[in-house]
Simulated assay, not measured.
Amino acid sequence: MSNHGGVAADQLRAFVERIERLEEEKKVISDDIKDVYAEAKGNGYDVAVLRKVISLRKKKPHEREEEEAVLDLYIHALGMAGSGEAEGRDNG
Rank of each mutant, 00 (worst) to 15 (best):
V7N: 04
D35Q: 12
V7K: 09
K27I: 03
D35K: 12
K52I: 15
L78Y: 12
K34C: 01
A40D: 03
D32L: 07
S55F: 15
E85A: 08
K26W: 12
G6E: 02
E85T: 08
Q11Y: 14
E25Y: 03
R18I: 02
K52L: 09
A38F: 11
I75E: 01
G42F: 05
E67W: 00
R18T: 13
D32H: 14
E65S: 04
M1N: 11
G84N: 15
V49A: 08
I33G: 10
Y45V: 13
R18A: 08
H4F: 15
A38E: 15
K60M: 09
A69C: 02
V70S: 14
M1C: 11
L12A: 14
D72E: 14
R18W: 09
A81T: 03
L73V: 10
R51Y: 01
R18H: 10
P61E: 00
A40K: 03
I54T: 12
V49Y: 12
G88E: 00
D72T: 09
N43T: 03
L56I: 04
E17F: 03
A48C: 04
V16M: 10
G6D: 00
E87L: 06
L50Y: 03
V49C: 07
V70Y: 11
K34E: 09
E87K: 11
L50G: 00
V70F: 14
S55K: 08
L22R: 13
A38Q: 10
D32F: 08
A14I: 02
N91R: 06
Q11A: 07
L56V: 03
I19P: 00
A38H: 04
V47R: 13
V49S: 14
A40H: 12
G5I: 13
R89L: 02
G88Y: 01
R57S: 09
V7P: 01
E23F: 04
S2F: 13
L22K: 15
N43C: 06
V36L: 12
D35H: 10
P61H: 01
R21L: 15
G79Q: 12
I29F: 03
H76R: 07
K60L: 11
V53E: 09
D35N: 13
G6L: 01
D35C: 02
K58F: 03
D32W: 06
K59N: 05
V70T: 10
G6M: 00
Y37V: 01
H76M: 07
V47I: 08
V47P: 00
A8F: 09
H4D: 09
E63D: 12
S30E: 14
E23W: 08
R18Q: 13
E17Y: 05
L73E: 12
V53L: 13
V53G: 03
D72Q: 14
S83E: 15
E87D: 08
K52A: 04
K34A: 04
R64I: 05
